[in-house]
Amino acid sequence: MSGAVEDAVLILGARSDIARACAQRLARAGHPLMLAARDAATLAGDAEDLKLRHGVAVTCHDFDALATGDHAAFLDALPELPEIALCAVGLMGDQAESQRDPAAAIRVLRSNFEGPAVVLSLLAERFEARGSGTIVGISSVAGERGRASNYVYGAAKAGFTAWLSGLRNRFGRGPVRVITVLPGFVATSMTEGMDLPARLTAQPEEVAEAVYRAIRHRRDVVWVRPVWRVIMAIIRALPEPIFKKTRL
């Protein structure tokens, strides 16, 4: 059953700050880890740190979320099929650039939606065949309603959230569990230099704790800071004629 400490965890997009914090939290609980990202050699320092601190096995694997054609081979080459897969792949991009440059918009859409959906689909098939597995997707509150300030990113995350929801519904009676994590603002390299309100901004460690507890307590959808649930409920409830005139 997913959640036991000996269960191996695959972390996709392992270089992100949220992924790194999750790796620390899960290794602290005793989980062996497979870290996957582009240029896996640069993950060696993190892997050594995790091994030294927590005494767990850690391996590093090359993974390019956009190279969707290679995803099946990537999974087949892993030392074992993980019990838990955490997808922290994401790219904020620059909204203005995404509006101007189709190539930039495509990169944002593919990084946040297509890539994660493809690799998690393949994992879901394998988990179903085995009869167990947990999928954790880091999505975003930005997907709750498209806003002028980041709708390309938001649309991709909306797609990913809907996709996770559908997958969870498909496996409503098992054997695969699906967890959607909605972090809100997080102080990471993605948001560095942005002027974020402190009360709405979580640290990566907070997201990691939420992820860990969601795995433990078999949650479906996790709002890392509950205030975001209220904020997004209000934003979603605004009638379109009013919403379209706001600047949010």
Partner: peptide
Amino acid sequence: RHFKRFRAF
């Protein structure tokens, strides 16, 4: 604060 890894023991 981002340079905080153990390297070897």
